[in-house]
Structure formats: C-alpha cells, structure tokens
Design a protein around this nucleic acid. Sequence first.
DNA 1: CAAGCAATGTAAACAATGATAACATATCAT
DNA 2: ATGATATGTTATCATTGTTTACATTGCTTG
Lengths: 205, 205
Amino acid sequence: MKTKSKPYHHGDLRNALLQAALELLAESGQENLSLREVALRAGVSSGAPYRHFENKEALLAALAEGGFRRLEGAMAEAILKHPRHPGRQLRAISQVYLGMAEENPPFFKVMFGPYDEEATHKDVMPVCEKVFWDLTGIFAKAMSDKHFRKQDPERSALSYWALLHGLSMLLIDRKLGGFQRPGHPLMGLLLETAERHAQGFLISV
Amino acid sequence: MKTKSKPYHHGDLRNALLQAALELLAESGQENLSLREVALRAGVSSGAPYRHFENKEALLAALAEGGFRRLEGAMAEAILKHPRHPGRQLRAISQVYLGMAEENPPFFKVMFGPYDEEATHKDVMPVCEKVFWDLTGIFAKAMSDKHFRKQDPERSALSYWALLHGLSMLLIDRKLGGFQRPGHPLMGLLLETAERHAQGFLISV
DNA sequence: CAAGCAATGTAAACAATGATAACATATCAT
DNA sequence: ATGATATGTTATCATTGTTTACATTGCTTG
C-alpha cells in the first residue's frame, strides 16, 4: 500500500481514534487517558476528534458500544457452537467474559462504567441488555429441555451474570489478595468457580 | 458551640476534607471530583489539602481505607449478632454490602477501584483482605458446625463475595435494565438472589 | 514568659487538559 | 468549474493538580 505523506484528510479517523484510545486505555488506564494523546497517536491535531465525537465521553461511549457488540457476538457464537449443552455454553461464555476483562481492564471498566443514559450512552444500553438476554435465553432453553431445574430463567441469568461480573471486577482491580499470588493459576480458579455455580442449576443426577 | 470567625487553623482539616470529598463524590461522581472544590467546601484554600495528603489519589485512598474499616466493622457486628446461624450472618452481610453500594455509589467504586498497591494504597489492601477473611471465617465455621456442606471455605467465600460484588456493581452502574424499572423492588430481588446462592451451601434437608 | 521551631494555611504560579472558535483544505454534488 | 459541506489546524480559554514562597498559629524549651 502506498503511504502518501500526510494527506490533509485522514480517511478513517473515527476508527483510528477509537483504536488509539483502546491502546492508550490498556497502557495508562482511564484516568490517565487524554483526548489530546489519542489525537496525537492517531497522527492528528488536538481539535480533530471533535469532528467525530461530541466530547471525550462520547468517544468512550462509542468504545463501550463496540465492546458490547464484540461480547455479544462471541456469546452468540459460543451458544451456536454447543447446541443442547448449556453447561458448555456457559463455560465458553465465562471464558469470553473473563478474557475480555483480563485483556484490557480499563476498557472493560469503560464498558460497564456509569452512563449518561438519556444522552451520550443511549446507544450502548440496548447492546448491553442484549448480552443479558442471550444469557437468559440459555437458561430458558436449558430448563425447557430439562437440563436445568425449572425456575425463573431471568433470575438464574442474573445470578450467573453477577457471579461472572463480580469475579471479573475483583480480578481486574486486584482484590483477590490471597488468590492472585504469582504462580497461582488464577484464571483457572475463576473459571472453575463459575462452573460450579452453573452446576447448581443442573437437575440432580 | 461558639463559632469563631475563621480561625487561621482549621483544627480538624483532615477529617473535614474527607467528609467534604465524601459528599462531593455522592453528588457529582469521581470523575467530577476536584480537589479544589473539596478544599472550598471545607472552607479552606486550594493548597491546603496538600498539608494532609500527598495528592488527590492519597485522599481517595484514605477514603477507601475508612470505607473498608466501616464495612469490616459492620460485618463483624453482623457475625456476632447471629452466632451459629451462618445463613442469617450472610444475609446481614449482604444487606450491609449492597447498602453501602447504594448509599454512595462513587464512594463504593473508589473503595474497589484500581490501586497503586506499592505506594499510595498500601494501607488499604490489608483492610480489604480482612473483609474477605471474615467471610471465609463464616464458611469455615458453618462447615465445621455441619450447617454447610464441607468444601473449601475460601472458594465458597470467593463465590459468595463475587456474587455480592457483581450484584452491587451492576446495580450502581445501572446495568440491570429490565430489573430496575421504577416500581420494581430491586434491592429485595438482589438480596433474595444472594440468599438463594447461600442456600446452595446448605446441607440438604 | 519569650524565642524560636514545626505545623498548618494562603497566594501565586505552571503545565496539562477538555472544550470552543476562527480559519484552512479537501471532497463532492451539481 | 463551483460552491457547499465535511474534515483538519491553530489559537485560545477555563479548570484542575501540583509546587513554591510566604504568612500565621501553636507548641516546646530555655
């Protein structure tokens, strides 16, 4: 590909900004993320981002939306990959969820951070809710297929989600003191914890 | 009490700053918290806080430490209040935990936020870990008393904590879409969710 | 009790940042 | 081609965290 020497127009600045922000988030965390540095890394001046995002929060909201899309896509894939095996579906989903948290913790926290729901983040919430509905769907189907004990699928999904989310948050904020000593297979332990919770839904054998 | 007109020395500025920060956190959130406003509310100039805290992060760390002390104290009290009744102990602890999250969400997030563990937050971690050990103690005792099925108490505590923490975080970041419609008794639902998880540990009757 | 010392608060400055406005340049429809 | 629109730049401003030099108070010690 030919690299023209600094064309005045970037061509795909919006995505470049999102990508730069993603990298800087991973490197420095949200509180050290400056829009100017994002612009700098995208090779553009400090005012340019405002042509694509209303403000800094809007950029983060777009990032969050993309994150939930990716999460939802991976979950849908995991569900399709293991039809009629809710246990395997849940395990795959746990891996994806915890994996995203571990891969870029500040990004994960941006996704689940506080929203300005009426304005800036109004496109994020629906995608986030879809994630929850995918999960609920697994439980509903597992119950009608007699794999899981019959109970309210929404509540079961809530319970599983909360466990997974709690593990993720405690992991990335390093609150698992004793468990995260070096040499400890922490991720395996967390996956197993989620797994056991899922087994609580099984029809007893 | 006699109110002297602006003595040069505040007398208890450190606590006044912490209190002001707590209030401003509740009102505006962490990202809108400025040290200058904290100083202003405490009736003091913008440089004064630096006589009591190395920097803004150190003030937040002190706040976090106080928060964990309060949480740990309330947990210890709940444990003493219901001897030999691990189920009631856990329910009381869930109430305290979710209650703190709901009472001042930004403060709760400061407590569990990312740490600079080697320097600024080195006094916070031990108190946080004590919270986890209190929880582990409940499970260990409940198992040796044959109230809970015998398994690794640390893992059980981790599982319960993660569930509780996940519920708290999803609650305060308003990610429970369908559940937090107005008129829904959300807190009751969350407490019940934690309760059911605890029942999973019971020796089957 | 007075002198001086340490603690505590003030005021003024600086650099970094989010945001806006005025201006510049490229792209596109007609 | 030409104007209109989209996109990028530069200059500027207010806010904020932080530091430095100075002021005031309280406490200790002779």
